[in-house]
């Protein structure tokens, strides 16, 4: 049983720079994932405008009938979001771990161009390890 279905990373202007599927039903093509990413970017921005009080930083958690979506925005505006099973715990922690991996293996990679799609082998390896670890933790409970 997969706890996490998808992972998206979008840059500060709403472009999808990383997408990974961990076993969701039905295929989503590249165009759809790009569209979803930019849609999320704009809804994140709109949610800040609708806030009843000042200091809103956008949606952190979206709860739907069949999934939960956790979103983490870094200080530079890069957004990380995971689609997971309803009620999955410790997703904030996982997002922080992913962010750390991003800073270590993507941003510190001299060949990586900012705001461009992520193609870093080390990032992929460590990411799948992190997700795997998370799954082991979930199965162990």
């Amino acid at each position: 049983m997969a706890a996490i279905y998808n992972l998206f990373i979008i840059n500060k202007s709403g472009g999808l720079i990383f997408y990974k599927d961990y076993g969701s039903a039905g295929r989503m093509d590249t165009n759809d994932s790009l569209r979803l990413a930019s849609l999320w970017h704009s809804m994140h921005a709109i949610s800040q405008q609708l806030s009843p009080t000042i200091g809103c930083f956008g949606i952190e958690l979206l709860q739907a009938d069949n999934f939960d979506l956790h979103c983490f925005q870094s200080l530079t505006g890069t957004k990380f979001f995971v689609v997971c099973e309803p009620g999955a715990q410790h997703m904030e922690g996982l997002l922080k771990v992913i962010y750390e991996l991003y800073t270590d293996f993507v941003l510190k990679n001299p060949f990586y161009e900012m705001e461009m799609p992520i193609r870093c082998e080390l990032f992929d390896i460590h990411l799948s390890q992190a997700i795997q670890k998370d799954r082991v933790v979930l199965l162990g409970r």
Partner: peptide, 14 residues
């Protein structure tokens, strides 16, 4: 289709 029933930001919950 699948619908959402709530979302949360740091200042409010809808």
């Amino acid at each position: 289709g699948c619908s959402f029933y709530s979302f949360r930001t740091n200042t409010y919950k809808l």
